[in-house]
């Protein structure tokens, strides 16, 4: 009798320990998983640690970041619901918006917009458009990137060129920062990058951007947004959105935003990405 009572106590205690921090949201099986892509400087691990700690404190929930080698893997993880949120490019969002929900859009220089840059080696002082680079080696960042792939493809199509054969050789670096490096060392004679990433890199690692020159800037396009998996519980969606939108209102969040070179987040509107959707359709039709 005594022994049974004791066992019961031990079991109860074990349960209490196991549920621990999760007690406020009963039934949640795991921590909040946020997918990241190189739409920002996602290789600054120390900064990511601070950002994660900030989210955990604000959410009151363990947070883990998920990084993969390409946009595609993160997109798939969101679509199948294996991760709760993701910072993605506008291009996959327009393609798969039936599988995800727009959570928030970053404000860059006061607007939820950014540009795609055409960069060339600093030694190249003549190039001003994509068409000047005919027959050259060109570096794309990711096939699912708007600024690093879709925009140049679209621009070439509009110029009457066939993007598949216009360059002598193209390759993907799977990251905007690496496009800057590839062009900087002369591996490629041109590259397409996220303008926000290039600008931010110019502040953090000026020696990398100094080896390149921005030859062309695209019109303003919808900034890569934060999305949520389609079946995210409403409370969690609201909680996360509140954290992002409120970042600029507390000192710690503001400091992190400064590191991100962003002004804050807004709830955003799906129409922000209409121009990207137009380009995506044009490119798909052109193939």
């Amino acid at each position: 009798m005594h022994r049974r009572r004791l066992l019961q106590l031990v079991l109860t205690a074990a349960c209490a320990v196991a549920t621990g921090a999760h007690a406020t949201t009963p039934g949640r099986p795991r921590d909040i998983r946020i997918g990241l892509t190189p739409v920002f400087l996602d290789d600054q691990l120390d900064f990511l640690k601070q950002l994660r700690a900030y989210f955990e404190r604000r959410l009151g929930w363990p947070v883990s970041f998920v990084q993969r080698g390409s946009y595609r893997e993160i997109i798939e993880l969101v679509r199948v619901g294996k991760i709760d949120f993701a910072w993605l490019c506008g291009y996959p969002y327009t393609r798969y918006q039936q599988d995800m929900k727009l959570l928030a859009v970053p404000l860059y220089q006061g607007k939820p917009l950014y540009r795609s840059y055409l960069i060339v080696p600093a030694s190249d002082t003549r190039t001003s458009t994509f068409t000047d680079l005919k027959g050259k080696v060109f570096a794309y960042s990711d096939p699912d990137s708007n600024s690093g792939y879709l925009y140049p493809q679209y621009t070439l199509l509009r110029a009457g060129e066939n993007p598949a054969s216009f360059f002598s050789r193209t390759f993907f670096t799977w990251g905007h920062r690496k496009v800057v490096e590839a062009v900087g060392v002369g591996l490629a004679q041109g590259g397409a990058v996220d303008g926000y990433v290039w600008d931010t890199l110019a502040r953090v690692r000026p020696e990398l951007t100094a080896a390149t020159r921005v030859a062309h800037r695209s019109p303003e396009l919808g900034h890569p947004p934060f999305v949520a998996r389609l079946k995210i519980p409403e409370t969690e969606f609201r909680m996360m959105q509140k954290v992002l939108l409120g970042m600029r209102d507390d000192a710690e969040g503001a400091a992190l935003l400064r590191s991100l070179n962003l002004d804050g987040f807004v709830a955003g509107d799906g129409h922000l990405f209409d121009s990207i959707a137009v380009m995506a359709r044009a490119v798909a039709a052109g193939r």
């Binding site: 570096a139 050789r169 390759f171 993907f172 670096t173 799977w174 690496k178 590839a182 060392v185 591996l187």
Partner: peptide, 8 residues
Amino acid sequence: HDDLWRAY
């Protein structure tokens, strides 16, 4: 894979 960047 003809992956120029990885090779680099």
